[in-house]
Design a protein around this nucleic acid. Structure first.
Lengths: 340, 340
DNA sequence: TTGAAAGCGGTACCAC
DNA sequence: GTGGTACCGCTTTCAA
């Protein structure tokens, strides 16, 4: 069942049928009705490939995910992707995901441009010295960055959590509770988000004329053992931290395991604040969440990003979007006043 | 730069150029060389949409992910997807992911069929009373199931871990270590994989003329708090379990947290075996892994599934694939002989 | 071994 | 308001 068949069945021209289906204004309302009814009856659906070829738009958005980035941020990606996916299907777009070796990223983007595989792309996990935005501009592919490319904040479109502010507020809370020896388990500090979080952490200290202890600041991929190992090591020193600020729930779980292993109680002997991306398989909600956290739903970010890309950037590729998502600071059971 | 331009530059017909580029045998080798050189030089890449329209193949594989399934299995999906993605890009296919409301699944498949959006689809997370395979057969979309559809094992193509055997072996190990009160924290038992794991657990008992304690058997979505809450509750009874068999690393981390909270030591006072999907952000490796586990890489499963779908099923949609992946039973630090 | 031309299934411009 | 028709860029049949 294609357009020609449908037109024949209706004794109309393809042109009219196409116009009726695509909501062109010049079609007679009765005709449109007839066309729509018949289309439904015969189960007609326009062939995607044909439409794409004719319009020159692929009606899909590309997500090129470098392997190493994926390794690190797997669960966060998936949640973002899920959010974006909702918006895409609502707006009639397809999502194309390519997980590729890091050195293949450029080739993949070039291929997307050359073969017209996607109308726009989403850029994930910007880091220091990230060059992807330059390539995409050269290739003329519209894009939106989830996060910010250091140094290109004002020349690219982006949507990002206010990481600096979130971590400053979290640190402030710990300082207000009397904590001074605060451990900071950050993500890898070649990632933009980690750099910003660190800046927030340090700023909170500076604002009070204090300084964080560098020996309590770590950076790594945010796995569970990372949290546990760091915490164990720190808690076993002479001058253990009384609080932890952790960049991810997964590592925070590790920290909490370490605290238990040391025979200490979380929220009492040791305070913990974590960033909570609101991942579905790591719920931290309920009336009083387990972890005090800075929370920002990655899934929402995905949905919003997809909308912005399709509704703002695609219609006018020169628009620049800057959208801040504020993280909430939510008090849970893992924080309390300094004891020792 | 399209085929016509390239042909013109070469002073050849589109036909010949197309044939040269697509490896048809009748082309003169010298001509082919010339064409390839020029194509590279001019940066020619065939327009995907046009090729798709002409061949009638979309060169993409669909993944329709019902929202509720996604919520539950998010990290596992992503790892599978990453594996599949590798294979897809190697084989020149695109991956289309649609995250949709559960009630939209059927409509989404119908749309894929009607609009020819994908040449085949991957079916994820089969459960009891799953009807997707029937729909796909009706629509004539080739597919491969990751897991098995209960009752359709011998009429559909699938790739699956040998869950029953893996959990039987794990249970055997615990029984050999003297454990009798073994808690079993399963995934939701409307999922096929969970049903099979439970069967393995029970069979190990039966083989020795024993029976598991039903009050120690639970099922739920495999979150961290699920593991922690169940374990806490069980460990605080008069007759606590001496071992836990857990369906996911994430819940196992919860169990381990609970064990610490009770002042007990994992691997000594209480043994734990978990299934380890080898997720990148939850490493459980090293010389002696933290958790004793049944391990099977979901990422590998994804890669293999994609290969099978494209290389076996697409060329001949009537082939039936049945592929078992064996899980390894790996001894870590979380198991030991019964103490009490 | 190469080329001309007819599709593939739509969209959109130009007449009527 | 409706229809004729020339594309979109590639594949493939048929002829040479």
């Amino acid at each position: 069942m294609n357009l020609k068949d449908l037109a024949k069945a209706l004794e109309l021209s393809q042109t009219t049928v196409s116009r009726a289906l695509n909501g062109y204004p010049e079609v007679n309302e009765d005709t449109r009705k007839r066309v729509e009814t018949m289309a439904r009856k015969l189960g007609y659906a326009p062939n995607q490939q044909a439409r794409r070829l004719a319009t020159g738009r692929s009606m899909s958005i590309g997500h090129v995910i470098p392997r190493t980035l994926h390794e690190m941020m797997n669960p966060i990606f998936m949640e973002f992707i899920a959010g974006a996916g909702e918006a895409y299907s609502r707006l009639g777009y397809d999502m194309i995901i390519s997980v590729v070796e890091d050195r293949q990223v450029e080739a993949t983007y070039r291929e997307i441009a050359a073969k017209k595989k996607a109308d726009a792309v989403m850029v994930h996990g910007p880091r220091n010295n990230d060059k992807r935005h330059l390539l995409l501009k050269e290739l003329g592919i519209p894009f939106l960055v989830h996060g910010r490319v250091p140094g290109a904040e004002s020349s690219t479109s982006w949507i990002d959590v206010n990481n600096t502010r979130a971590f400053e507020r979290a640190t402030d809370l710990l300082l207000d509770l009397g904590h001074r020896r605060i451990a900071f388990l950050n993500g890898l500090e070649n990632m933009d988000f980690a750099i910003r979080r660190r800046a927030g952490f340090e700023r909170a200290f500076q604002n009070r004329g204090l300084a964080p202890d560098p020996s309590l600041m770590r950076q790594s991929e945010m796995t569970e053992p990372y949290g546990a190992d760091c915490a164990l090591e720190m808690l076993r020193t002479d001058k253990p931290p009384t609080a932890f600020l952790v960049s991810s729930m997964i590592s925070a779980i590790g920290v909490s395991r370490a605290i238990s292993l040391c025979g200490l109680e979380i929220g009492k002997d040791v305070s913990v604040i974590t960033h909570d991306d609101a991942l579905s398989f790591l719920p931290n909600s309920g009336e009083v969440p387990i972890f005090t956290c800075t929370r920002s739903s990655v899934r929402y970010a995905g949905r919003r990003a997809a909308e912005l890309l399709i509704e703002k950037i695609l219609p006018d590729p020169d628009t620049r979007i800057e959208e801040h998502l504020e993280a909430e600071l939510i008090i849970g059971r893992s924080t309390g006043p300094r004891q020792r």
